[in-house]
Design a protein around this nucleic acid. Structure first.
Lengths: 222, 222
DNA sequence: GCTATTTTCCTTACATGTATAAAAACTTGC
DNA sequence: GCAAGTTTTTATACATGTAAGGAAAATAGC
């Protein structure tokens, strides 16, 4: 792993490829052919090297994907005009992150990363935390609040993306469908009643509603 | 794939293993040696068969894991005494699901399943939806509310589990640590201020706080 | 120039999920 | 009993991530 700060005149065999080149090439593959086509071998040949050489610049494939997400965030996250009102500021900042991530289908495998992803997302995090503080939360509470929002956001994206993947994967009846088919209306009346319109309901995009609810709830807890 | 309803006197070569046997054996392996040791080959030899034979009883490994989760939920989800007050009922039901899932570390890979997982969890879902309706939400809103809670719950578990995995994987400095190390307090004051106690804060278990906030917010939206 | 050291790269090998195609073990219709 | 059809099982093969160990290419000390 190359040291970030190497003031020395470089010792050892000089590298022929760089971490940046690896990431850039990976990005090109993902952009043009989808994340499924990104294999270490493919990337290696594309870059004119061997698979194992990549592992000197990237810890493993997962780290490569995190770096890609990072790179993507830096390009896709444009800072919007934020409303002055703190509560709205929180909502808009979170929604901006959500929108960028949701537009990036391959992201799911990485999204489970620890909190705040890339450096370029930090500004949004700052806005959210600051908004929560401006609404009267203590700094600790504000951070916890941000995390709650982040959990909700990740959950929404991951669940929806997986559901979508499963749907295209296959056309046999889903587990869900079979379960809903034989619901006992005596024991589970609400679900039985909802059985028919469950699918359309879950297809709706209600991220914003949930987000607002979460923010309202966080602020009401003052 | 065996038909659920096969009234006929069974046609074709009689099966030597059953889906149930596959799941049961898989469960034994996971329970005793962890989910990492569950490979299709290992499972096959354990069961006295060949890897590809399993694929006649289970669509693929992911489905096997879903079935395992199902099985786990059926055993681990005990219906608690629910409070009479609807708001508290929602919280307790959701917390019960969360507790069971969080106690099951291998679950993450499956947790991204479409909404409501196993049949045995449906009762909890019913309680949540019913509680929301009892608090005045329309049935549609109640289902959306349940889904928001589910997203939050999945996000919490997935993010925390992945963070934990990454931590044990490696002891090199995290991405997060490096980012926090050089925060610009001018641009990101809240984060810079929080940099030191970010790690302990994120280690805290605040699921319940976020859950209450979400529920409060959902109910306030009436 | 020569050896030691350091860093990067390459070769080989393995475990894994699973696609494909053929074989095996049945029932049914004749 | 035999051909056709159906379902399960097996054998073989491939793509993938990556571990292990050695080769290559540079610098540093002599």
């Amino acid at each position: 792993m190359p040291q970030p700060s190497a003031p020395r005149k470089t010792l050892g065999r000089p590298p022929r490829i760089s971490r940046e080149e690896v990431v850039t090439t990976a990005r090109r593959i993902v952009d043009s052919e989808g994340v499924d086509r990104l294999t270490m071998r493919r990337l290696a040949t594309e870059i004119g090297s061997t698979p194992m050489a990549l592992y000197h610049h990237v810890r493993n494939k997962e780290e490569l994907l995190v770096l890609l997400l990072d790179d993507y965030a830096a390009r896709a996250l444009h800072r919007p005009e934020l409303p002055a009102q703190p509560r709205e500021r929180i909502v808009v900042a979170a929604a901006a992150i959500h929108e960028a991530l949701a537009a990036c289908p391959w992201i799911v495998e990485v999204l489970t990363a620890d909190d705040l992803m890339s450096a370029s997302a930090l500004w949004f995090v700052e806005q959210i935390v600051d908004g929560l503080v401006a609404c009267g939360l203590t700094p600790e509470r504000a951070i916890q609040g941000y995390r709650a929002i982040w959990y909700y956001t990740v959950g929404e994206i991951v669940v929806r993306a997986t559901a979508a993947r499963r749907r295209t994967d296959d056309d046999r009846p889903t587990y869900r469908e079979r379960i809903f088919a034989d619901l006992d209306p005596g024991e589970l009346p609400r679900l039985a009643q909802a059985a028919d319109h469950w699918a359309p309901l879950t297809a709706e995009d209600t991220y914003l509603d949930g987000l607002r609810a979460m923010v309202d709830g966080l602020l009401a807890a003052r």
